[in-house]
Computed example of a mutant assay.
Amino acid sequence: MNRVLITGAAGFLGSHLCDRFIKEGFYVIGMDNFITGDLKNLGHLENHPNFEFIEHDVTEFIQIEGELDYILHFASPASPIDYLKIPIQTLKVGSLGTHNLLGLAKAKNARIIIASTSEVYGDPLVHPQSEDYYGNVNTIGPRGVYDEAKRFQESITMAYHRFHGLETRIVRIFNTYGPRMRLNDGRVIPAFMGQALRGEDLTVFGDGSQTRSFCYVDDQVEGIYRLLFSDYAYPVNIGNPHEISIRDFAEEIIKLTNTNQKVIYKTLPVDDPLQRQPDITLAKKLLHWEPKVNREQGMKWTFDYFKTLSEEELFKSEHKDFKQHIKK
């Protein structure tokens, strides 16, 4: 049985990856320090014979007993609320954490896939964004802690690939959604759905003309899985190319939730990208992959999940107190 380590395992995407690899017959070792993850995302795996969990911060030295065939590095804050609250930890997990995991992969002779992001493109001057676009990033802006952590992550991964001959893969993830998202993490979909469920007006930043492209989590996981087992070491966009403005998306959410909230407008955050749409030509050619779940169906499944949350979860303004997890 092949053994795989998945960091960020208690997070939204990490927990779905655990499910997929267990389904495919792997022995899965999940790792998380719960700075943004939640153990409830892994509750259904608690007694599974092919799953074990290690609570650990990947910015500290990592030791795994026994053989290891694959590593998926998905540990990182991923929403603006998170990385604006914990900027140093965000930079450390992208740099020190990635360095530790690349070293582990080298020691174990394991193949490693690194979770990068569409944020490496910054506020793009090219649309849609293809892998050969180098991006437009403000290195000293508030979002730079996330953008630059991911750009460095890609650079050190390629250095290990070229210098050590390490088997590496890099996935550039575009906006992904689905069950197990944190309701109040600041991203568009949980923010809108949470406001609708609480009877609040939907908040749109700027004039709402900025665009996003939303990929359902099952499609995202499929793309990641195929990329890991491909022979391609360079970055690959995995996302849904169907673009929509935030203003139009807000109206979709109001219709989906059957609510009568208004849309209110607030100032656009600094360096918030005005356009986000993946060019997935490479993924189609290389991986024979493209998303299958349309937005209408995916949003319904996601809203059905949010409706199951408790009143405490629904009205809690923050998911957790980050400070308790951070060393001085």
Rank of each mutant, 00 (worst) to 15 (best):
N2G: 01
T7L: 06
F12Y: 02
F12R: 04
L13M: 11
H16P: 09
F21I: 04
F21V: 03
F21D: 00
I22D: 06
Y27P: 01
D32C: 09
G37I: 01
D38L: 14
N41T: 12
H48Y: 10
F53I: 09
E55Y: 10
H56K: 13
I62V: 15
E65G: 15
Y70G: 00
F74L: 11
P77I: 01
A78M: 05
K85Y: 04
I86Y: 04
Q89P: 05
L91Q: 11
K92T: 02
S95I: 14
L96P: 00
G103Y: 01
K106M: 02
A107Q: 12
I114L: 11
T117P: 07
E119A: 13
Y121E: 06
D123L: 11
Q129Y: 06
Y133A: 07
N138E: 11
T139E: 05
G141I: 10
G144K: 13
V145W: 12
V145R: 09
E148T: 15
E148F: 14
E148L: 15
R151I: 15
Q153M: 12
F163P: 00
R169P: 00
I170S: 05
F174H: 04
T176V: 13
R180N: 13
D185C: 15
D185I: 07
A191M: 15
A196I: 06
G199E: 00
E200C: 06
E200A: 08
D201N: 15
T203H: 06
V204G: 10
D207Q: 12
R212Q: 07
G223V: 03
R226V: 00
L227G: 05
S230F: 04
A233L: 01
A233D: 04
V236G: 07
V236Y: 10
H242C: 07
S245D: 04
I246F: 07
I246Q: 02
D248Y: 08
F249W: 01
I253C: 02
K255C: 01
L256M: 04
T257N: 09
Q261G: 11
Q261N: 15
L268G: 05
P269N: 07
D272G: 03
I280C: 04
I280N: 03
L286D: 05
P291H: 06
V293L: 04
N294P: 08
E296K: 15
E296D: 09
M299D: 02
K300R: 14
T302C: 04
K307M: 09
T308A: 10
L314I: 11
S317Y: 03
S317C: 01
H319C: 01
K328S: 13
